[in-house]
Design a protein around this nucleic acid. Structure first.
Lengths: 129, 129
DNA sequence: GTTGACTCTATAGTGACTATAGACTTTAAA
DNA sequence: TTTAAAGTCTATAGTCACTATAGAGTCAAC
């Protein structure tokens, strides 16, 4: 299978697949006579693993770690658990930050009602302090 | 006042100040004989305005718009209100996305308990599907 | 044989900074 | 007065995870 088909099957762009290869997340695969990459089902699995991780906002560097861990099947997986725990904490923190941000924005928004002219705009006045 | 003092007063880094100037958010200021930038209180105000906006996650491009609007004091400020409203919506959307992400991560986390070996790790198994 | 679809590499751009190199200026101490 | 340290200058590259483009090569069908 060539890269276009893999891209369709996995709903990745061709550029992204090549990018993951360059970053060492996908194995390099053999090439056709015309230098086209040739993929098999193993590549689909690898790519879906990456996609799944990315959909959970796991960074490429963390994915690299997970791949490395996965390839030592007899070690304990405590570091996998730790990685996920750390990730949940980060997401939580970001949610709290954004909630506070929203609160601030709403306060700001209330400083001005529609139809004023700029020099009386409560929002701009507030932002200028 | 030279750039280092401005940086201290506003808790910005020197590089960031120069960056904002390059991006047209800060006025270019006059220079000393030795080509050092010389700032006055006007620069402090401009920079604090930018900082205040950035703390609300307003993009540099939006800040540019706000500056432009602010400099036409007789026009209505409806576009300021619209910009803030749009921003609140975006933040809200992002919060919802992150909440869903957190839910997914927690589900994932429950797939594995501590102390297993990698080849039995429920998290890695789940991610591989 | 030629058109069109596909693929290749290499490079630049995104946003909002951050970091570095190498040179110049100013200030303070010896 | 020298010199060392601290401050500043410009220009450039790096960050992250892609995305977009240029220009060239490959392949299949008509």
């Amino acid at each position: 299978m060539k890269i276009g088909k893999l891209a369709k099957l996995t709903a990745c762009t061709i550029q992204t697949i090549r990018y993951y290869e360059k970053e060492g997340l996908l194995d390099t695969v053999k090439r056709s006579e015309g230098n086209y990459r040739l993929y098999d089902s193993r590549a689909i699995k690898q790519l879906m693993f990456i996609k799944h991780c990315r959909s959970l906002d796991i960074t490429l560097s963390e994915i690299r770690q997970l791949i490395e861990i996965r390839d030592s099947p007899e070690t304990t997986c405590n570091n996998v658990n730790a990685l996920v725990d750390r990730h949940i904490k980060q997401v939580d923190l970001r949610i709290e930050e954004l909630k506070e941000l929203k609160r601030q924005l709403k306060i700001l928004r209330r400083k001005c009602t529609t139809g004023r002219v700029v020099k009386d705009c409560g929002i701009l006045l507030e932002l200028s302090q």
